[in-house]
């Protein structure tokens, strides 16, 4: 469900049914599953991010501790995708890459995946 709430947050729509009806979603958080264990993979907002270092146009940057993507600058070279050790960056389908930005521009302070998790498995907290 985090995947769907993530995709919905990306649409800025008001109604998930209208926003996501009949479309292939491209969430920035992905569930890996094996042996009955599921794990949500999204950007870990590394303190020394390889993706930012490797970005050839400066589209990836740090906004405080959050790694953000400026889609206007991204040229879709996918260097970051090959560099990210966690597989947290993906192609968005519109030329640029996409990644989790902790919903800084879309939601009211709490990422959509966190609000959408029914079991409190994804938490949003500051890590020293």
């Amino acid at each position: 469900m985090c995947e769907y709430y993530c995709a919905f947050a990306g649409t800025n729509g008001k109604d998930m049914a209208r926003a996501l009806k009949d479309c292939d979603i491209k969430p920035r958080i992905n569930i890996e599953e094996a042996d009955g264990i599921s794990f949500a993979v999204s950007c870990r907002h590394c303190r020394e991010p390889l993706c930012v270092k490797g970005c050839i146009t400066g589209a990836l940057g740090m906004d405080g501790t959050v790694i953000t993507i400026d889609k206007d600058r991204c040229v879709g070279c996918y260097t970051c995708i090959t560099l990210c050790p966690y597989g947290a960056i993906s192609a968005s389908g519109d030329g640029a890459v996409q990644k989790c930005e902790l919903c800084v521009s879309t939601s009211e302070g709490i990422p959509a995946c966190v609000r959408g998790c029914p079991n409190g498995a994804i938490v949003y907290e500051e890590r020293a």
Partner: peptide, 9 residues
Amino acid sequence: YDRCIACRV
């Protein structure tokens, strides 16, 4: 079905 987005949850 107008509201189902087939998320399969």
